[in-house]
Nucleic acid binder design. Sequence first.
RNA 1: GCCGAGGUGGCGAAAUUGGCAGACGCGCCAGACUUAGGAUCUGGUGGAUAAAUCCUUAGGGGUUCGAGUCCCCUCCUCGGCACCA
Length: 868
Amino acid sequence: MSERRKQFPFPDFESKWQQLWLERQTFHAPNPYEPGFDPPKPKFYVLDMFPYPSGEGLHVGHLEGYTATDIIARYKWMKGFNVLHPMGWDSFGLPAEQFAIKTGLHPSVATARNIARFKSQLKKIGFSYDWAREVTTTDPGYYKWTQWIFLKLYNSWFDPQKKAARPVDDLISRRRLEFPEESDDERRDFVDRHRLAYVTEAPVNWCADLGTVLANEEVLDGKSEVGGFPVVRRPMRQWMLRITAYADRLLDELEPLDWPESIKILQRNWIGRSVGAQAMFSVCDLNNVITVFTTRPDTLFGATYMVLAPEHPLVDQVTTSEQRAAIEEYRAKMATKSDLERTDLAKEKTGVFTGGFAINPANQEKIPIWIADYVLMSYGTGAIMAVPGHDERDFEFAKKFGLEIRYVVEPPVAVESYFTGEGIAKNSGFLDGLPTPEAKSKIIDWLEKQGSGKRFTTYKLRDWLFSRQRYWGEPFPIVWRNSRHEALCESDLPVVPPPLDDYRPTGTIEPPLSKAKAWIRLSDGATRELNTMPQWAGSCWYFLRFISPNEANRFVDEDAERYWMSGNEAKNRRRGGVDLYVGGTEHAVLHLLYARFWHKVLYDLGYVSTIEPFHRLVNQGMILGQDNQKMSKSRGNVVSPDEIVEEYGADALRLYEMFLGPLESTKPWSMSGVEGVYRFLARVWRLVIDENQEGQWQLSSCLGTVQLSTKQQKVVHSTIKKVSEDLESLSFNTAIAQMMIFVNEFTSAEIRPVEALRTLLILLCPFAPHLVEELWWRLSASFAGFEGMACEQSWPVWRDEFLGEEEVQIVIQINGKLRDKVTVRKDLGKEELEQVALASMKVQEATRGKSVRKIIAIPNKLVNLVVH
RNA sequence: GCCGAGGUGGCGAAAUUGGCAGACGCGCCAGACUUAGGAUCUGGUGGAUAAAUCCUUAGGGGUUCGAGUCCCCUCCUCGGCACCA
């Protein structure tokens, strides 16, 4: 096929226009105070999720979002906006390093090569990126500022009163005032416990095959998200970021964002705010209490036993000597099991009695304390009060081990076994007769008065495990001295990783950086932190660096940040952010949550002007292979953009990416579909260009400057309207369909009015920019109105008076079924419509011998006769 | 199990406030032009039927003059979470 002559000569002109756009800096957006900056112009920041440059290159799935944003960017330029549309590379992190290990190439070499490959692929598609703003997370000039932001996190704490991050210095001086007698070391310990970036020894997700720990978000079903290797829990000393401090703000400030509701729900579920109470149970014969969290404090009188997680610190003390052997056996069994195995056993409840008892604070009854793996150490307090009458899990456990079941809530309709809904309290002393919400509130008040409980909110969200035992990541700007961590000065940034030849995992928990003996030791005896940051670090703020990628003195230029991130509502400029952010759902709880967290910290400390980074978010759907399966190398169904550009051209690729269906939905690729839009582009070409006897392309002889017919006028203006409106709602597929209708209409015209073609070319320009520029340029040789480049024309405006006709077709129904169609004057009144309908021959036939009960007439639409 | 998104011709899909179901494209069929067609142009194309007509938006019920669209139930597909107290 490639031997065949192309239907239009895209190979001759695509690179020509790409070069011209570059040379003339057509899509360079000036910042405030820069030459060419035009203050009255509105701004528009349209952003893609930047890729990590893998060795595989791009496939057509990546390009769907990129094409959509490019069309919007070009459209906004034509609408008179100053458009920020940048691209860069998320080049640190596990995938890049795994690839490097596989191929034996140093990550820096492989990364540079992959970036070059990705960039040339993107350039061939004619995206209007402002390449002067390109950023690379592995560039020292970039990660200097990633490290700088880490220092801000390290040197801040979360003030619960203000619900905001504040410099840790404030905390130190405050502490000094409050506890003047405290030693420096004690004060440091206190401060270190409050930093937003802190070190802790905690059970973490260790993946031996990857040689690193992983964040909760990176572990799926007990396996690593990258590679699918087994992950086990083990205690290790790690860096954490205190994202949990922001849980409420991450939830509440999510509400006003223009994001898909489904993504908001994913984030809400991940944060998992749960409102209830803590209650304290004293342990019999021990001077100790077990604190539990419950969302149903109203069922306290129904708590007939307690369960501790096997790892709970009080298990040892509670266990009696008779039960110790059984408890130890159970705990040992649990310790060897991975999280996956533990949840797999979920079908059948297991557990062991500790021999110990606690006192139910509500009724002073003695209740047994068990341990069971259905109680998780990582949630709530790691201990529960079991209410088998009103909780499914407690019910199953109580049934299995013959524990007492007591019902304390009367359900609205009688149920067997257990009832988890709301009802009326019973068998609950002073709560009896109260509906659930009132009972909850009353028992909490009572607990608080007794000093044995309080209102409490728990979250599923855990602090963010921020260190990795990897080579290819940002080094921490931290050194250790006398087993204490210390921040480096800003002037020491960037901390550049040592040029290791052997950067593979060590096979132990020691990070690869431990191999760089000389790099580790500083002259003053301090040693460097050996962990590196996770992949997500660089992507937490890249959208800010795009604003001023070469700024040397600050992570982002202040004026430029205020300009590009500002909201469009004058009344609330804090409600700003990127105007349109397009990317896949896979980042719903990882990147999008982390980036929001960093942004809020930067906002609190006064470094950025908006509380949220991304005002409007759109998720593009996945593109499946032609076999309806997920595109993957192993299935052999990957479609590369290179072959499409070669065969059909960049414009056909762009157009098909948008024509195959709505942006948000999952849909399969089809090669014959590509041919379809390719044929459409060829029809546009032939609308303007003919082939002469010698086989050369020349302007068509059918072109002319003639008056448009009413019908043509209507097609032109309804196309302007449809394309404009569909672009605003990102309905690219239907916009293209309308342009096809336009072309079908004018293909059959004897003389093709140049004015109409000019409008079509402008509308098509954001979609198929190369073809349009070429035709525009060729037309400019013989016709007026084609000065400059097509992409610099202003967007056309439709006029309603050309949309309508004097006559409209009216549908006549009998009992809701279509019986006839008539053409009448537009806006004909109801009474006249009824007369017209009754006069119809078909209606008279159908209603003969029957009575017309009712007539519904909707002007310009239909008449429905109800007949018996 | 829970939460979310979906289910419309042979295929990808359209369808303001409920108002002609299937726009547009692919595929298929026929014709034209051609030495030729895997190019192009023109016409046709949801299903059943000889036809008038009837049926048709996963399935069932409901509201309505009128339902792809609103309400209730069931089934299926995809995505997320998963003993979260």
